[in-house]
Design a protein around this nucleic acid. Structure first.
Lengths: 247, 247
DNA sequence: CGTTTCGTTGAAGAGTGTCAAGGCCAGTGG
DNA sequence: CCACTGGCCTTGACACTCTTCAACGAAACG
């Protein structure tokens, strides 16, 4: 449990060479600062599809910056129900939940083969104390996570099934685009059940909504492969509940 | 907009005298550290019921520690729907959402006359740089907010109306108890509509669920006044959806 | 190539939302 | 002091969205 079964790559990591540095913790840092930040990254770690990066209850030791791949975070409710709280892709930092109680509070599992930079928290604290802009970036990353979750609360609290799914697809689209991938064509790494869990819906509802969008020509979907055909109309789905009321 | 219309109390504040210090940012700090932290608190600010502490879009300048009173944070969806993202009481820190974009992303409004300590963020950063345990506490407060929101996602994503309400009441109960108030008898400062917004329900559903709990002898409710009669059975409501499945 | 997981679709039913009417309470002005 | 007003809450009846249950097909995996 202390030593993860997954491969520990001991090669030295250079943020300066990483094409994610503009999305990741060291965003906006100067060359010399970058050098200091590179001292944080102890190792990289590979997680194969289906394996956990960490589990709820594990001692909190590190944050992780996703280099490559795709993960989900899940919470287990007392009655055994699994709630997906987020999906994570390259450039995003995971493990922030562990800081408060010095233990992780959710499971984070790879949905495809994934590679992360391991950022030992103690070392991160030390370096951040010496590099104000890193300190600042860390707080911004945490704040952004809070804002993101507010958005999810809005989604879960006030949207209906198709609005939720549209918002979800558009969000994915935008995140892929920010990483240099196509914003109109991508692969859903997660299952319908996982999408449903995240959106507070059953997998059948997700499937039906996808079929409906496809039938209306908003998207094309074949298994996990998704193509957005009409992002404007997909965006319009978000405001659809109003158009009925505000006549 | 820059200068709030609410009263600025210029009297010097002493965390060391504050009976909330065990719940608030300076938790666990030594006497000398406490002295430094007190330099952060510039002023207190009073917000009357219905007034905003800050609004979405306001420039982010300070965090706020609630000294007294009760607030809600709300997000406005593009279609004009208001989503409550949280309720805040004494000892809690609000405004964390503003750090990421240097602007607030939600409205935070007093539900009763409220008093907060104003913590100018720049000064907070300076002092935190010199007081590691404060630095640490700030990150823990942020992380705790992330964990809290995970819990809300679980609630919104997987519970039904009465489970949500039970979870909500028990959460309030526990927070009141932590502040030295009764855990069985308290006043709901928010309206049914605000509870509903937070829980992803309509106000009628909240009202019906409360009536149902009252009818079953779990609670007593008269307007905003609430008394928990049987917290065990209220807790049992949370797991009720299982008992049907796991026969 | 069988087994398992995942996805789609239909039909029926439960849980909430919607709409509407009425009651209670606090604040306001006559 | 009382009537009036507006906000808040409760309750009922009905509509609708989403879930549940079930069957089947397709893809992934050993």
């Amino acid at each position: 449990m202390a030593v993860p079964s997954t491969c520990l790559a001991s090669l030295r990591v250079a943020c300066s060479n990483c094409n994610l540095r503009e999305l990741c913790l060291p965003v906006g840092l100067s060359g010399t600062e970058l050098g200091q930040v590179e001292q944080i990254v102890a190792t990289r770690r590979k997680i194969r599809r289906g394996e956990a990066l960490f589990r709820a209850g594990d001692r909190f030791e590190s944050l992780y910056a996703v280099r490559l791949g795709f993960l989900k975070s899940t919470l287990m409710s007392p009655d055994g129900h699994e709630q997906v709280t987020g999906f994570h892709m390259a450039g995003e930092v995971v493990g922030l939940d562990g800081i408060s109680a010095e233990a992780h509070t959710c499971d984070t599992v790879a949905l495809e083969d994934t590679e992360v930079c391991v950022l030992p928290y103690e070392r991160l604290e030390e370096i951040a104390a010496a590099v104000p802009s890193l300190q600042n970036n860390l707080r911004k990353v945490m704040s952004r996570e809070i804002v993101r979750e507010h958005g999810v609360m809005l989604l879960l609290g006030s949207m209906r099934a198709e609005e939720r799914l549209a918002a979800f697809l558009l969000n994915l689209s935008q995140r892929f685009e920010a990483r240099g991938y196509s914003r109109t064509e991508f692969v859903l790494r997660m299952t319908r059940a996982e999408i449903g869990s995240f959106l507070g819906l059953k997998l059948e509802t997700v499937s039906r909504a996808l079929s409906h969008f496809a039938q209306d020509g908003l998207i094309e979907v074949e298994q996990k492969h998704l193509r957005i055909l009409d992002s404007d109309r997909l965006r319009a789905v978000l405001g659809s509940s109003v158009s009925k009321e505000a006549h």
